[in-house]
């Protein structure tokens, strides 16, 4: 990832939008990925989130279904 990628516009959702989205969808209809460290996940996480720490993301892409919308935090 180049440094310029930081300035590209990344689609975002506010926390409220995420909450609404999750409440309207079945758990099977989206990927919700927590990219923080395991200790942070253990302390608190959004119910139903899958833990894939940022450093492992590239190697664990298979765990994310590309056919579904994905929310990361």
């Amino acid at each position: 990832m180049g440094v310029l990628d930081y300035f590209k516009s990344i689609p975002t959702m506010t926390a409220d939008e995420v909450r609404l989205f999750l409440s309207e969808k079945l758990p099977d209809a989206y990927n919700l990925v927590d990219v923080r460290q395991p200790r942070e996940y253990e302390r608190d996480h959004i119910p139903g989130a899958n833990l894939i720490p940022m450093a492992e993301l590239k190697g664990r892409l298979k765990e994310i279904d590309p056919a579904k919308p994905t929310i990361v935090y």
Partner: peptide
């Protein structure tokens, strides 16, 4: 993470603004 996923060919990816600190809902 969102940049990496978009670069890997995923189409519908969103980053939650403010991360979990902005989340004022329930946590497990």
């Amino acid at each position: 993470a969102a940049t990496l996923l978009l670069g890997s060919g995923l189409k519908d990816v969103y980053s939650m603004e403010g991360g979990l600190r902005a989340w004022n809902g329930m946590v497990a």
